[in-house]
Design a binder for these strands. Structure first.
Lengths: 191, 191
DNA sequence: GTCATTAGGTCAGCCATGTTGACATATTTT
DNA sequence: AAAATATGTCAACATGGCTGACCTAATGAC
């Protein structure tokens, strides 16, 4: 623990020095504001859906599953596991409930009959859109307040925050969903 | 559940119509990209601290407590509860561990002796700074990639995402911490 | 055609962190 | 003296992560 304090001492000294010292991470440049803003923003960002979900006996875990299945109709269980980065046992619990209650259904893969491709039902799509609508309303209000460049700036900042190794994969997922979701939802809404 | 589908139908129709219909929330304007970017960005944003904390037997809950106490030396338990928006029982569990393991300590309030004012110890400050440094490194990389306006744009976007009722309070907390943290950490590091 | 691999499911139990409700103690306020 | 406040604590429960073990069905390699 003592070695950790060394950093602090270095940082204090660098404050009084006229020229910047080669500090590991100057305390005065810690982005406390953005760290805390991310915490508060995310907390409130998920709070609107939470209320709706609670009435249905669902939680955030259900929301994530429903959201990504809605956005990627026909996705494989393995893909969903990869996106959510949870274990199949954790996924299994919430997925089973969503299936039992009629929000998601599975179809055998055409090529590979081991696969269980995931689709939202009509009710599932409705709920997913309702929840996305709540979050969109919050986002849209902010973007309207901030002007035309805010959206792209937010996109770039958030995309940059993603782990470099995952970033391309995630961005591809997001844009692939963009093109898929509208066309396929109409066809596959109740497959 | 049927009434939920009404929205969908309206939205589908608005797609094929030449003129925009008065939709509740057009599906084509749902901010799916930002919704998902926030999910992935936040997930990775907390992942670096998580690894460090896990080695110490702590979790995210400990991180939040340590962070805000470090940033607001001498804050009251009630204030911390208000910021974190959890119950005192939940807080009590993690706070007790942080105190027992020497990262946080309490002092009786000078005016009101019922109060237990919270301070980080030297070890607590070191850990808090270390964790903030990890998150700062991620943020700094992004800001450097995006140019000089990115920081203010991110601040505005994230601040706007906070519930309107809380926003002023939170922003005051963040700026109050800015002015407090540096001066008081030196004085109160080991009170 | 057999066998290893893959996709997925399931059971059992543990852990972290949130919740409610009830109650205790010390201190301050009225 | 009584009421209100700040904090702590016990007990019980829910959610949603985790590991480990084991199962079926289907595919792919040889």
């Amino acid at each position: 623990m003592a070695d950790l304090m060394t950093n602090i001492s270095i940082m204090r000294k660098s404050r009084s020095a006229a020229v910047p010292v080669e500090t590991v991470l100057p305390a005065d440049e810690l982005h406390f504001d953005l760290i805390e803003l991310l915490f508060f923003a995310y907390r409130d960002f998920v709070s609107d859906p939470d209320e709706v979900l609670a009435k249905l006996g669902f939680g955030r875990a259900h929301h994530r599953v429903l959201h990504f299945v809605n956005r990627n109709p026909g996705m494989k269980v393995a893909e969903l596991l990869d996106v959510l980065k949870i274990t199949k046992q954790s996924l299994g619990r919430v997925l089973k409930q969503l299936i039992d209650e009629g929000y998601i259904l599975q179809k055998e893969g055409a090529n590979d009959r081991r696969q269980r491709l995931l689709y939202v039902t009509a009710a599932g799509a409705a709920l997913a859109v309702k929840l996305a609508g709540l979050q969109t309303a919050r986002i849209a209000r902010v973007l309207a307040e901030l002007g035309p460049d805010a959206r792209e700036a937010a996109r770039r900042f958030l995309a940059g925050m993603i782990d470099a190794e995952d970033r391309e994969h995630v961005l591809r997922l997001i844009s692939r969903s963009d093109s898929l979701a509208n066309g396929s939802r109409a066809r596959n809404g109740a497959p």
